[in-house]
Design a protein around this nucleic acid. Sequence first.
DNA 1: ATGCAGGCGCGCA
DNA 2: TGCGCGCCTGCA
Length: 290
Amino acid sequence: MKEQKLILNNIDCFELDHIFDCGQCFRWNKQEDNSYIGVISSGVLRVSKSKNNIIFEGILDGDINSIVYEYFDLGTDYNAFKAQLSVLDNNMKKSIEFGRGIRILNQDLWEMIISFIISANNNIPRIKGIIERISKRVGKRVEWNGTEYYLFPTVNELSQLSIANLRELGTGFRDKRIFNTTQMILNNEINLKNLEKLDDTEKIREELLKLDGVGEKVADCIMLFALKRFDSFPIDVWVRRVMNTLYIHNEDETKVSKKDIKETANNLFGDIQGVAQQYLFYWARSNLKI
DNA sequence: ATGCAGGCGCGCA
DNA sequence: TGCGCGCCTGCA
């Protein structure tokens, strides 16, 4: 690992708050100077903005140029997505304006699998705490600017923890799910390298659903945030809320089925419904608070 | 203080 | 296949 720095200018659609607070990541923390520091699979990274410049600096394994390009999805034209979605209706247009700087990060598959198993029936601060404690317990330690950070553990590292260990770290009833899934991947019952090569989204979903603790919603999150499947549409309470409020208009929100939501999303947003989901989720979390 | 939070797995029709 | 229910835990 080595210290590196990169400054990019005139990057479209790149707002730190939007990117890091639209529900896709758990290991980025806002600093007092409004920059963000995050632990990613290749190391520790700080991102800050000043005028038209975006400054990336950190201690990384690999070349910062390619890491940043990949991780922040810089090869994708989000203006094209916005143009395609904003003509649909004014609600979508409003959501896009609100979350105009959103980008879908390209995060590590293994980390996303475990992180979203932890997310089940849980809240964000607690999810972040659990991931942090797990990483501190068995992840690789990295020191940068006098502060200690811990990488998300590898499959081997996480397999050192027993179900009881996981429970001690606050995972609750998810302890067995994390343990079982780690074993399945460790034993190559599910091969993550092969999974990354598959191009059929439904085949990937089928494989992911074999993992303990991975249901429809978690599978959708994994595919969207680690495998760039923009045609997946994770439905959580906020997405259900916003989809009903804006499009379905059922008097009893709890009666809106996932199938209805999926069909509505598919008809409206097609193969970029995952991108639409991010704009809607981010907008809903700030504007539909109860 | 009960309910709730980015669901899942189970049992039952 | 489609439902209802219980579940660790911390926080308001």
